[in-house]
Nucleic acid binder design. Structure first.
Length: 551
RNA sequence: GGUCCCAUGGUCAAGCGGUUCAAGACGCAACCCUCUCAAGGUUGAAUCCCGGGUUCGAUUCCCGGUGGGAUCACCA
């Protein structure tokens, strides 16, 4: 046995398998050649990030549109930053947003299991053992202090930072020396031995950016940490090879470490997957564009949208409109919100990061909500209220049918009402329909127009209360309000009023306003006709009497 | 700072050397409609970062600058 094998054996006595065994264990998938295999590989360090949702969306539809596979792999190799339960939460949120993995973590499909990196330690070690045998990886005994020193020297002398060349002390240790140090019990990590030259440029192809020219990697990166788990760089290479990923989708921030990954694929003699580096989603901060940050921006976490009550479809639609700029046109042309029918293409992606636009989200959301049935709207509102909006929940629970009727106001018209951009908007708009809430609204009085004498208002309201005909259709009813107004000196339409202002006390909108304020406590409300038909006759009369009684 | 990525209106963006007065959407403004609001309709303001080339001709190709972003860990 040569020295390198002896070293490898000393480091990994428990590993008996070879890379060949792994290849045999994880054979290629049986899919059509054009099928793309993509994946979402989050680390369980927190809630689902909006950028991650974006990446997942792209990955998911890339796989789907090519009849491929989209799977999830948990990158739980950072035990320090890991948050208990975050993995399950991530998957739950992903599914919540209708991105359902076809394989891997969070499913019961798993030809290439395990899908949690923490459970794949032996796989990484198997690969590393062979790398050590071939001299492509070596143990490094440098302490954090030594590494720090190196960096400081490099900074001072303005050299490139990193563990490379003559700075990579441990790469010059021979096998005997390494064996000795290990036997002495010195702690170590394992580094990949780079053969690259920083002055050489390599050209790599990115699916959405085209060719990129970057310097070769020459840094001996850590591939196995002292805790026995791999670093991202190495785990990515091993896992995406063994799991047969065809296109690696990830954020743009990974471009700079691409040379490391390329070098490792080559060293292992493995085919290099296609790469698609997605633009980051940004936010405007003090006039500067910057990456959406979990700490500073509530909308960085996908839970924000859920809390606010944006329907998940609207978020997806918005994200898709960023991903494929032709999606919006397609949506309008096909009158469809169904992402599954949209011919998604990764090649239509924009290259620079979009600023997250809540306004546009709200627009899509209004459109989407306006096209739901009242029953569906009601059902969803209940689900939202149950988790996030106690005020709304108590209203819905009083009488679901009543609530659904409110949700139905002008919903089945050609141009449905678009009051709500999110479920959170519902409560303030409709609370006047409920007596308790109404009384809170008018606690400090009714906001009647001070330019109209209160006695006139009272006369009109009394008359209205006594004479309103509830059997009339919308148009006839409104005509009856005009007639009522004329009786008290109000013009029946704007033109008449404007032509002869001094002749009238006001116009029909003033009459409508009186009724509106008396019934809702607000100057604004949905269509009065429908309000009148949802509120009970008794409630209407009581509220009008109440409005009349105040000074 | 080194390296890489990016650059059309406030935002998302069509465009891919020559009829485009430079699409469309959100937002904004005005007007119309209207019982208020939410909508809807019409109209409008608003963009090719700068400087050199290449070319008969550049928003489009090349170079430089500027600006923005990303990255330089035993984190992913």
């Amino acid at each position: 046995m040569d020295k390198l094998h002896e070293l490898a054996e000393l480091m990994f006595p428990e590993i008996k398998e070879t890379i060949g065994d792994l290849e045999a264990k994880y054979p290629p998938r049986n899919l059509i050649p054009s099928a793309e295999i993509t994946r979402f590989a989050p680390s369980p360090t927190g809630y689902l990030h909006t950028g991650s949702l974006f990446t997942s969306l792209v990955s998911y539809y890339l796989a789907k549109s090519t009849r491929g596979v989209f799977f999830v792999r948990l990158e739980d190799t950072d035990t320090k930053r890991e948050i208990a339960g975050a993995g399950e939460a991530l998957i739950k949120e992903l599914k919540n947003f209708q991105i359902v993995p076809m394989e891997g973590y969070g499913t019961n499909q798993g030809r290439y299991a395990p899908y949690e990196q923490s459970k794949r330690a032996n796989i990484y070690k198997t690969v590393i053992k062979e790398l050590v045998q071939k001299g492509l990886a070596y143990p490094c005994f440098c302490t954090p202090e030594e590494l720090d020193e190196i960096r400081q020297v490099q900074e001072k002398t303005k050299q490139l930072p990193g563990y490379y060349g003559s700075y990579a002390k441990c790469r010059y240790l021979n096998a005997d020396e390494a064996i000795k140090l290990i036997k002495e019990g010195k702690p170590y990590v394992i580094r990949f031995r780079s053969k690259g030259n920083h002055n050489n440029k390599i050209r790599v192809h990115d699916e959405i950016r085209g060719d990129i020219d970057i310097s070769e990697n020459d840094i001996d990166v850590v591939i196995l940490k002292s805790d026995g788990l791999p670093t991202y760089h190495f785990a990515h290479v091993v896992d995406d090879h063994l799991m047969k990923t065809t296109t690696v989708t990830r954020g743009e921030e990974w471009i700079s470490s691409l040379p490391i990954h390329i070098e490792m694929f080559k060293a292992l003699n493995w085919p290099i997957p296609k790469y698609a580096h997605l633009p980051l989603i940004n936010k405007l901060d003090n006039g500067n564009k910057r990456k959406l940050s979990k700490r500073k921006d509530p909308e960085a976490a996908v839970t924000f949208f859920l809390q606010e009550g944006y329907p998940v479809e609207a978020v997806l639609i918005y994200l898709m409109s960023i991903a494929n700029s032709n999606f919006e046109e397609w949506m309008i042309q096909n009158k469809s919100f169904d992402l599954n029918k949209f011919p998604f293409s990764i090649h239509k992606m924009s290259l620079d990061g979009a600023l997250f636009d809540l306004n546009k989200l709200a627009y899509f959301s209004k459109e989407f909500l306006a096209h739901l049935s009242a029953e569906e709207m009601s059902k969803r509102a209940l689900a939202y209220a149950t988790s996030y909006d106690k005020n709304l929940l108590s209203l819905i629970n009083k009488d679901t049918n009543y609530f659904t009727k409110i949700m139905n106001i002008e919903r089945d018209k050609e141009n449905p009402r678009k009051d709500y951009a999110k479920f959170k908007d519902i409560y303030p708009i409709i609370r006047f329909f409920y007596d308790d809430e109404f009384n809170k609204i008018v606690k400090n009085g009714f906001p009647f127009n001070p330019n109209i004498k209160k006695e006139v208002i009272n006369q009109v309201l009394t008359d209205f209360m006594n004479t309103n005909d509830y059997s009339l259709n919308e148009q006839d009813w409104f005509n009856s309000v005009k007639v009522l107004g004329e009786k008290y000196g109000f013009a029946s339409d704007r033109k008449t009023y404007k032509a002869n202002k001094e002749k009238y006390l006001g116009m029909v909108s003033d009459i409508a306003e009186m009724i509106r304020i008396a019934l809702t406590g607000n100057k604004n409300s949905p269509n009065l006709y429908y309000v009148l038909h949802i509120l009970s006759r008794e409630t209407i009369n009581n509220r009008i009497k109440q409005a009349i009684s105040v000074k």
